[in-house]
Amino acid sequence: MATETHGAEEGGLVFHPMDQFIVKPLMGGDKIAFYTPTNAALWMALAVLCVVLLLVLGTRGRAIIPSRVQSIAELAYGFIYKMVEDVAGKDAMGFFPYVMTLFMFIVFANFLGLIPMSFTATAHFAVTVMLALLVFVTVTVVGFVKNGAKFLELFWVKSAPLALRPILAVIELISYFVRPVSHSIRLAGNVMAGHAVIKVFAGFAAVSLISPVSILAITAMYGLEVLVAFIQAYVFTILTCVYLKDALHPSH
């Protein structure tokens, strides 16, 4: 249970590290139907808004010498473009908008989640599992459409001795189906862990004796979380590219 009552002088330390992830309807009421605007919906919408602000409004000048916002947008574009080109290969450029969508959404959801009192959409398994499943389904479908039955060569390691190949095939098959699990839990887990740790330190700040240490620790964790927010978005995106490469060129 989340509550941990200490016999401290303030009457006990109270930890609710997971309360920040509660999904609430925005308009009041207590029913959450699938269409109810919730805080999750709000912060996802804000992520969309940020993408629009950066990539559409930021580039409306179409300036040859870019403004600051436009150069950030171009940087993001070049970053993902190069990633898709380098990791997934030139014939994967059709997936560039898709990969860019994933990256921009995750990176903005992560960063918006770092605003105090906000809601982190990517800390929810519902969101990350869906994202990972989208990638998984895309990769599987693309693999079979582009390569047909040859896609199964992905599980048949030609470089291994013949006797080992069936065993390796089983392992490869399992690892293939574990991909969406690790893909989603990595993102949600990292984000959730950081936010929960910050909340735990915030709980310690109630004791006046250790509150300076606690606040310092929160600051340090916050810095780390800013890094993690970007790196996890990067990792999610680059793994998507790796999986796409597997789908397009299945033979080892």
Binding site: I32, T38, A40, A41, A47, V127
Partner: peptide, 21 residues
């Protein structure tokens, strides 16, 4: 109980971003 809600809004957000991009 709210997975459906989140997935719904997530898909809307993703489709919106995809179309805009």
């Amino acid at each position: 109980s709210h997975w459906g809600n989140q997935i719904f809004w997530l898909l809307i957000a993703l489709v919106a971003i995809y179309l805009i991009l």
